[in-house]
Design a protein around this nucleic acid. Sequence first.
DNA 1: TGAGAGACAGAACGATCGTTCTACCTGCAT
DNA 2: ATGCAGGTAGAACGATCGTTCTGTCTCTCA
Lengths: 191, 191
Amino acid sequence: MSEARDRLLSTASRLFYAEGLHSVGVDRVIAEAQVTRATLYRHFRSKDELVVAYLTQADEAIRARVDAARSEVEDPDDLIRTVGRSIAEDIQGEGFRGCAFLNAAAEYPDPEHVVHQAVLKHRQWFLATMTELFAATGKPDSEFAGRHFVMLRDGAMAAGCLTDPAPVGETFLRGLEGLLTYRSNLGSALS
Amino acid sequence: MSEARDRLLSTASRLFYAEGLHSVGVDRVIAEAQVTRATLYRHFRSKDELVVAYLTQADEAIRARVDAARSEVEDPDDLIRTVGRSIAEDIQGEGFRGCAFLNAAAEYPDPEHVVHQAVLKHRQWFLATMTELFAATGKPDSEFAGRHFVMLRDGAMAAGCLTDPAPVGETFLRGLEGLLTYRSNLGSALS
DNA sequence: TGAGAGACAGAACGATCGTTCTACCTGCAT
DNA sequence: ATGCAGGTAGAACGATCGTTCTGTCTCTCA
């Protein structure tokens, strides 16, 4: 859409992710985006809506990456590994500050709040998607595997910005490999 | 110490944990603790210090629980299971709102900030302690096992307040059992 | 040519933030 | 008896919060 809107959203995303949602006020955003207050409120009804737009953008970026991996990798196990490696790379990347959604949920604990609900929506999609990927391996109990994967991911994302990210990424990938190995010894799903 | 200080700290803990650090102002705290502003600032130099006191109290409570388990359970594997069950119970408990430390880190990303450092201190202790417990099993690679345990815990704590806690707790305990099984098939540590 | 949308500038709103202040009262220890 | 620590009460500080407002200027498209 508008060029000012893009600058607004990308600036807000950068600041929100790096410094937190409540810590960054609209004054900071409009100053660094070089936009006036009126412009912000023309494109976003409120700060909450700006936060939701930030999370929506992050959600779409992740979906796009998973979809890309899906179309590039055929083998179900390798596809899961690809997603896992992508996560491990994120953790090691410059300026990594944890999961944008987990951080947002920590700041907006009220389940009724729009921001909190945006987090839930993303997480529901991600869990369902990972469960699908595990189901595609033909092994049983993909529900548990999906939850296990997400749990490892959440832990890795949370710890990755609190300690040296290298061993965190390594532990995550090794844990994932353990899960895949465990499942490789299972019989095929009956249903 | 003082009776007003206790009321202050317990009220602050309840509000901070339930609603977040930045969302709860000092006005809320003093109102619900039925204490005046001057009383708060007699006992705590600033709000930051009150937050640190809240985290310190939580840290001590967790250390006490681990120490209690340590003196009650002899078998190393069972001791780890006991700590794991304690975490799973927390997640299922009334009013669970995630890990107080992970939530605090999300709100205070600056590594130099006293609150952030209180989080790091607690996590260093916890990781070191769990690594010790795994080392006590006599199996090798306790470093990885400790990191793996903490990663599962972090993921479980993060997800436990975002979805139905029952399957989260189940997944966590099943993942932990998988880790213990994997290690039971390892040879004894050489060093 | 003229209308309307989008961005500009900037003042101002009431509310809340964390913090400091003066002043008075009480209970306990020296 | 005196002093002081710890509590009460309440006003006030400057700063920042998110939001709304009145204007003006500049494009684009009918």
